[in-house]
């Protein structure tokens, strides 16, 4: 394995981590706001807050880790993506600011401010939409080089069915991932009402997820034949992902083994996410930037990898402690203990 592949794999794993934890977070915020609108917030709010409050900051770090890491391993991405993404990413940042401040403000100050809760819920769906556009851009076709400077062609991007399919997929995935997770969490908390509601949402969002995923495959065929053919070669990975998806949905339908369902869901997305990533190889921004011509010096790469390993030695036990205290602690999950400062 070359350093380039190692670098991009590490970053891809962290991006995947962000996709999962952020999906749970964003979806939960949306369900929370939605339940307020339809008058069912008494069922959901407690469950959602109890899980999310201690971890919102950690979720954010996954994102920071990714964008700092990619500039470290692939400095040229700062030049290309930095120049073209000024507007889309600034919008995401504004939305992230609204969300990031919410938990702290809400749990300690403006309790139950309806306008804020709704803004927050909607922001949660717009962030994945605005961030996922980057995947479309990475695939190529929306960036021109003018006098050696990359320029984003907004019109082509905003009228592109491919970009919109990715947006739809990201929103469906967010709602599906988070509802499956919260079904399990509510079930653990012995909260029958919340489990019922979240289970319903999980089943509702399973269909649009699959439809949009298939739509993207279809559009890729005409837009980016090169990575489409890579994806066809990786058909078995997508097949595994589909099978995992079906088992998850069946388990939820039969009201069985929600914990296993969450595990399979993560596996399903992991396989699909990595298959998609491998199909893009070797491009970071098609056709201008590959992982080879954008790679940092060997010395820096080695330094970063050593730092990464040392960092993980600190991080993994800490994450385990966090999960042990808040995710797998019966008294905390069921709300028997409310020990917040």
């Amino acid at each position: 394995m070359t350093l380039e592949i190692l670098g991009i794999s590490v970053l891809w794993i962290f991006l995947f981590g962000y996709v999962i934890v952020a999906s749970i977070d964003f979806g939960a915020g949306f369900f929370n706001a939605y339940s307020l609108l339809i008058g069912k917030n008494h069922i959901l709010t407690n469950i959602i807050k109890r899980y999310l409050s201690p971890v919102w900051e950690v979720t954010n770090v996954f994102l920071v880790f990714f964008f700092v890491g990619i500039v470290g391993f692939f400095p040229q991405t700062a030049f290309y993506y930095g120049t073209i993404l000024l507007v889309p990413v600034s919008i995401s940042l504004v939305l992230l600011a609204i969300r990031g401040s919410y938990y702290a403000f809400e749990s300690y100050g403006a309790r139950g401010h309806i306008g804020y809760t709704l803004t927050y819920g909607v922001a949660g769906l717009l962030i994945p939409a605005s961030l996922s556009v980057v995947f479309a851009i990475a695939g190529g076709g929306y960036v021109d080089l003018i006098d050696g400077q990359p320029v984003l062609n907004y019109w082509t991007l905003y009228t592109s069915p491919f970009a919109w399919s990715i947006v739809v997929l990201s929103i469906a995935a967010v709602l599906y991932i988070s509802s499956v997770f919260l079904t399990w969490y509510a079930h653990k908390a012995n909260d029958i009402e919340a489990t019922k509601l979240m289970r319903k949402y999980a089943l509702v969002w399973a269909a649009p997820l699959m439809i949009s995923a298939l739509g993207i495959m279809y559009e890729m065929k005409s837009i980016n034949p090169e990575s489409y053919s890579h994806m066809v070669n990786l058909w078995w990975m997508f097949a595994i992902s589909a099978v995992l998806f079906i088992i998850t949905v069946v388990l939820i339908m039969m009201r069985k083994k929600y914990g296993l369902a969450v595990g399979l869901l993560i596996a399903q997305f992991a396989v699909a996410f990595f298959a998609y990533g491998i199909a893009q190889y070797p491009y970071l921004l098609y056709p201008y930037l590959t992982i080879y011509d954008g790679f940092t010096s060997t010395q820096m790469a080695i330094a970063l990898i050593i730092a990464f390993i040392l960092g993980l030695c600190l991080l993994l036990p800490s994450l385990y402690l966090l999960m042990k205290l808040f995710l797998f602690n019966k008294n905390y999950v069921t709300g028997k203990e409310d020990n917040h400062a």
Binding site: V61, V64, F65, V68, G69, V71, G72, F73, P75, T296, M300, A303, L304, A307, F308, G311
Partner: peptide
């Protein structure tokens, strides 16, 4: 990049 990365 190293200290930036360590900061995270």
């Amino acid at each position: 990049a190293l200290p930036l990365f360590l900061e995270t």
